[in-house]
Design a protein around this nucleic acid. Sequence first.
RNA 1: GCGCGAGUGGCGAAAUGGUAACCGCAGGGGUCUCAAAAACCCCCGGAGGAAACUCCUUGCCGGUUCGAGUCCGGCCUCGCGCACCA
Length: 867
Amino acid sequence: MNESVTVAAEAPRYNFREAEPRWQRAWAERGCFRVADVPTDNKPKYYVLEMFPYPSGKIHMGHVRNYTLGDVVARYKRARGFAVLHPMGWDAFGLPAENAARERGIHPAKWTWDNIAAMRAELQRMGLSLEWEREFATCDPAYYGHQQKLFLDFMRAGLVERKESWVNWDPVDGTVLANEQVIDGRGWRSGALVEKKRLSQWFLKITDYAQELLDALDTLDRWPERVRLMQAKWIGRSEGARLDFALATPVDGIAAVEVYTTRPDTLFGMSFLALAPEHPLSAAVAARDPKAAEFIAECRRMGTSEAVIETAEKRGHDTGLRVRHPFLKDTTYPVWIANFVLMEYGTGAIFGCPGHDQRDLDFARKYKLDVVPVVLPPGEDPAQFTVGDEAYVGPGTIFHSDFMNGLDVEAAKGAVIAELERLGVGRGEVNWRLRDWGVSRQRYWGCPIPVIHCDGCGVVAVPDEQLPVKLPDDVTFDRPGNPLDHHPTWKHVACPRCGASARRETDTFDVFVDSAWYFARFCSPHADLPVLREAVAHWMPVDQYIGGIEHAILHLLYSRFFTRAMKRTVHLDFEEPFAGLFTQGMVTHESYRSAPGPNGAWLYPDEVTKQPDGSAVHRDTGEPIVVGRVEAMSKSKRNTVDPEAIIGRYGADTARWFVLSDNPPDRDMEWTEAGVAGAFRFTQRVFRLVETFGDAPTEAASDAGRDLRRVTHRTIVAVSEALDSFAFNVAVARLYELANAIADAGIAPGVGAARREALEMLVRLVAPMMPHLAEEAYLRMHPGAATLVADLPWPDADPDLLVADTVTIAVQVMGKLRATIVRPPNCGEEANAAAALSEPNVVRALEGRTVRKTIYVPDRIINFVAA
RNA sequence: GCGCGAGUGGCGAAAUGGUAACCGCAGGGGUCUCAAAAACCCCCGGAGGAAACUCCUUGCCGGUUCGAGUCCGGCCUCGCGCACCA
């Protein structure tokens, strides 16, 4: 055919319905994405991981976005010559399975495994380059048994503690929540107001690593700054002092109150001491003072919901007790119980210095307590300075403070601590906002905590050889509480130590334990140990982790801790699990209501027909519909689009392409029907272009051919750079340009070879994003070829073709663009300036002026500075 | 309140301190068609002008620079996170 390529009048359409499953089978059959647990070759490794899904039953657009991003990285790195580990599994324990059991009578295990099967099939239809041989679910004893082993190892290493503590109790879910799972005073799942309750709980000692977890954030240079800041704030290091205030008269043997402060320098500005309502001394007071008891009960009822905190006044109850100042022998202060003091932080007691703390000031004003300023702001007159409605928290000079007078704030802190230590009533102390991680949950569908309670021996670990402690299948959900606790036989066991009858722990682990080490298990998912040391040594850390920002604290912090704990227990030998982290934005959509305001029922997008003017009507009834805000897809607002339907209608490649093309991946993207349709058009367009591939030409290349080659090779560079920097939308734009350039070059004489090259590169560069289309197109271009695009290396650009044969130079006068000149490259300043000065527009702009200076940026800009 | 982002055409956006708006979406006009779809071609920040071209334009004000969307200072707005943490 040579140059006379015939373009069929009816270009055959790319049949994705037939092609996509065929290529998915081809990749699977060839085992394209398989790697060894412990490879023997010396290919560089790259571990790409997307946060594994909870098996809710259906994938949503957030999954499509997440897994598409990860797949582009995986396929690109693979083409770049890396051995890529890219696994998938299921975060399969959790409450929804139990809710299904309660509401619909389906066993949690059946519900979960059925959901997994459905979602696996959906993910497979996306054409992800996953190694399904590594798949596991956390609800499988083959996984959680190893988790129990890890827990016991942590226990032996002193990283586990059982203690009675105030817990966040979710009355709806009937379980304990970690601090991290309480949002605005409500349970993260149920939304119920959280109550305070005292319970015996298992804790993992994450606080042992507080300093390390904080310090190491600095080493995570491929994490978003935002996430590092959030973690640093969550860990919340503060420096201060812990000190004792002796009670003037002891109560129930309590002789002193311990206080934590970050402002020991303001100790002489004290005017009261305040206790948390849950403080033991508060309880002692309440035992003999009904009014105190009533106040404490009130505080407990108030909870900590956002609404309450916003409006809550500082309130307190004067206990009548007095404490002595540590340095002033005969001075005493009143002891209050106050609603704004938190038992969980510091010691649950504070000294109030109203002059330099806003909360203390509010409290003091309300209860008419003294306000004594002790820090003098710079430039203020000590005789004049008073505190009004705003506490002074800035720097200054200490006054009214005995031996510290004249010191600055920092020096005074040191001086007070030294004096406290000398007197033996206090010391400097670093305090943390981070609490130990309470992992006990009173639930069935979780990993059993592998311990046994024996009346004689106390808490006894389940011997390793008895692991896994499996969940019983025969449980009932007919009453509230923990089905494991209700089970007739499961918890009754013999004590492994003394043989006496004993009770199994019926609490299960928080699901965040399950996800705190799964990334390591993926390296050797079938090993008899939790992890194979050589496998994790090879594959870890995860080079690129991708997921939602909502896990910025909980999951990522727990995983960082778990990795350290696994290092201490010699399961692995590194600290940080995720070298690179990328947090994607949400997928959003317009929302629709049948009528304005809260009375309008939410409508699904496919119930709505958009009118050309942007308004909307009901698909069936034609009734007008209210188009609402664009917001995150959610079931409650019904503004969801089902990925299954999109893939069925347009194909996986179209869905992938659209999700990548719309905007930068860290921002929220809006899903629009028009956008998907545009992506679909491009798939067909690429395929039509491929039909013009033709036979290898024999004629010489034309100028147009050479120009097309330049575009092609510049595109290789541009797409590579874009993919390297997660600028997938830019990569997409450059590929559209290449397609446009191929179409523009057409089938004119002398472009044949260039077009063949351009088409082949287009297909190979598109492959990480639209892998099925790439394979199908490649096969069209090379009929009978056994090569898969998935196995081709990433193309290299020819450096000679990156050099343009003409350059366009902007000519500015006084920084304003006056002309552009097209020149051969490397003419030099003098020649280019001469050419620029002969431009009529430039001459006009320089009329009546003299050029005083010429700024020349080679082959880019000439700027004449004139006076 | 504190911390972090972000403000660029009708919309999503692009732009090593160097020609602002690549590319896509939407829209308008056209070709083909009995018609529609598809496809293809043209236009598409604002103002002025017949045109050449000129002026304005990256939230606002100022600064640095030959040159600022980009750097610096101050404000405004929006979003997100944290929030009685002593």
